[in-house]
Design a protein around this nucleic acid. Structure first.
Lengths: 169, 169
DNA sequence: CAAGATTGATTTGTCAATCTTC
DNA sequence: GAAGATTGACAAATCAATCTTG
């Protein structure tokens, strides 16, 4: 049974859907148990940690996080209420404001990250070799690069390096 | 900059999240425009088409479709209201009922499938070789196989072959 | 009382309208 | 009047409780 191009494509796409559907709820729970953070919070903290000055405009944030602009507004509200991020005026353009990581937020993220990374290893990466992981990131990265919106690359989704080490674009 | 195992894992996982987040809304819209079907309907029709007798118990259906048991109940309601699936008694076990594809449902699915497959090609598979598609399905398939719930394999997510041609496991 | 399935309440996420600043 | 962002109305998805049959 030689699979047609369409079948190959559909199988690959289907596997992406299934893996994410199976794993997201698991990771979310594990994170909540281990670090009291919902995945959506973690994602925002991660992106802020990785950003220069630990701050991003809302639009930038929603480009990086896998969340809509609207949703980001709400999540940042929640995070601000919890004291994990703050909002700061953008003097150059008063329409936009920065979301900025607080010390508490940094601490929360740094505590949570190892748990999340360990979830990824045990639920996802476990049975895969380094080369296979590289291949996935590479191949799916090319898919993203080909999309209208341009490549919205994330920092490793795990531990952020110190802010100044990232430049991008 | 040699990436650590954890970074590799996080990157690969992140790319899965991003690809699915970027593409699902696009495919959903394209399907609605082309065939007046939401993706969730399509998914159910697909699984029923691929099932022996074009019928499945609700639990079986929710194992195959990327939807919760609850959600499947509701989607099947909608599909039944639209005349695309019917419900049928299971005489062997009256607790459960079958969802079964109607002729109208089969027709709707067969009309929609080419559009969906073409979305997959243009939005996802486009820049990838056959081997790369195989690699993704294979590697992510192994991830799924390693999960507690056991591998929930889907039929090709595209065109279903006639019910009797599927046996597998 | 466990398995299969559905329903009601709640949460989560999105869309359209709005407000402010450029 | 367009860009950046938030808010209220709505749809989608999940959780807990329920009902029925085994």
């Amino acid at each position: 049974m030689t699979a047609s191009r369409k079948q190959l494509a559909a199988n690959a796409w289907g596997s992406v859907l299934q893996v994410r559907a199976a794993l997201v709820p698991v990771f979310d729970r594990e994170l909540q148990v281990a670090a009291r953070l919902p995945l959506s919070w973690y994602d925002v903290l991660l992106e802020l940690s990785a950003a220069p000055g630990e701050r991003l405009k809302m639009t930038e944030l929603s480009e990086r996080v896998v969340l809509s602009r609207t949703r980001v507004s709400r999540v940042v509200d929640e995070l601000a209420a919890a004291g994990l991020v703050g909002r700061e005026q953008n003097d150059a353009d008063k329409r936009s404001a920065f979301a900025i990581l607080t010390p508490l937020g940094r601490e929360a993220f740094e505590k949570a990250a190892p748990f999340y990374l360990s979830s990824i290893e045990s639920g996802f990466a476990g049975p895969l070799s380094d080369d296979e992981l590289r291949a996935i990131a590479d191949v799916l990265g090319r898919v993203l690069a080909g999309l209208p919106n341009g490549p919205v690359r994330r920092p490793s989704a795990g531990l952020a390096r110190p802010a100044h080490s990232r430049s991008r674009r």
